[in-house]
Design a protein around this nucleic acid. Structure first.
Lengths: 150, 150
DNA sequence: GCTAGAATGACAGGGACCTGACCAATATGG
DNA sequence: CCATATTGGTCAGGTCCCTGTCATTCTAGC
């Protein structure tokens, strides 16, 4: 449980962003464990939804998931080791390899996709659907204003 | 520059929280560098505002800053190495040592406090003051609902 | 007084990200 | 058609934060 900060003066937005992000991540982990994929941590699980049947290169996957390609390469490596993904050669480009889902990966994918949804649903129950929707919109607007298209 | 994610379907709140947090952190770093404290990273800078004249133990500092005491111990170690903090013994408790600001620390403190404010100001200019305030409130409400008092 | 439990913090290790420097293969254009 | 830029990926290293475990010290209840 990641810290309780004392009631008092205005907390920094930065701190709240981090705490909320951490809360999200551990909630996703809990969902995945409950769904029988305990070895699929939140960080790695978010990769699966972006892997199409006909394969995808690592760099593209990184862009979709919003991380650097080095990070994605590491995640994909672990997911391969754990049997969720496999890689094959790319006939159109000898530099890159294509990443595919394995049978286990296909099994886990719906759970991975649902986990995030469940967390957001839970947040809506804890507060109001409106608040969560507004939060999402405000985050998106701010990121857009900062030059990160979302 | 931390990734541009493609316009498209709903981005996960989790992703936006992380991207925004990263944006905040690098903006703070930029402010601190501009203020002449290039060796003071955002992570460490947030410690200074919580160090009172009469000293404070590491664990308490951790609680105030919203991190684990191990993390704070590490940060304090670096800040000591870089001359922003010093530690003395605690007359009331032989287990703990008290952390104090050095002259350099006292110099840096206003900059550290201002940096976060400046970033939030900038965000208000980029969007609207109302949006940022609302975001802050919504984050606080959600954290509260999740059992993290803020 | 003395001992059970709480609190302070140190040590060891891990996870999810990042930047920078680099190589290999492809695409481009003069 | 060959020099150059671009793109796909890897290697090395760093940041910020976490958990778990352990020794030391303080504080109450008996």
């Amino acid at each position: 449980m990641p810290v309780n900060i004392p009631k008092g003066a205005e907390p920094r937005i930065s701190l709240m962003l981090r705490l909320l992000h951490d809360a999200y991540a551990s909630a996703v982990d809990a969902e995945l464990t409950a769904a029988g994929f305990a070895d699929l941590s939140g960080g790695r699980a978010k990769v699966l939804p972006f892997v199409p049947e006909d394969g995808i290169p690592v760099g593209r996957l990184a862009m979709l998931a919003g991380v650097r390609k080095q990070t994605m390469a590491e995640m994909v490596g672990q997911l391969q080791r754990d049997g969720y993904l496999r890689s094959g050669s790319n006939p159109n480009d000898a530099r890159s390899r294509l990443i595919f889902l394995t049978a286990r990966g296909r099994e886990a994918r719906p759970a991975a996709m649902a986990a995030g949804d469940r967390v957001e649903e839970h947040w809506k129950e804890l507060t109001t659907p409106h608040l969560v929707t507004r939060l999402r919109n405000d985050l998106a607007k701010l990121l857009d204003a900062l030059g990160r298209s979302v």
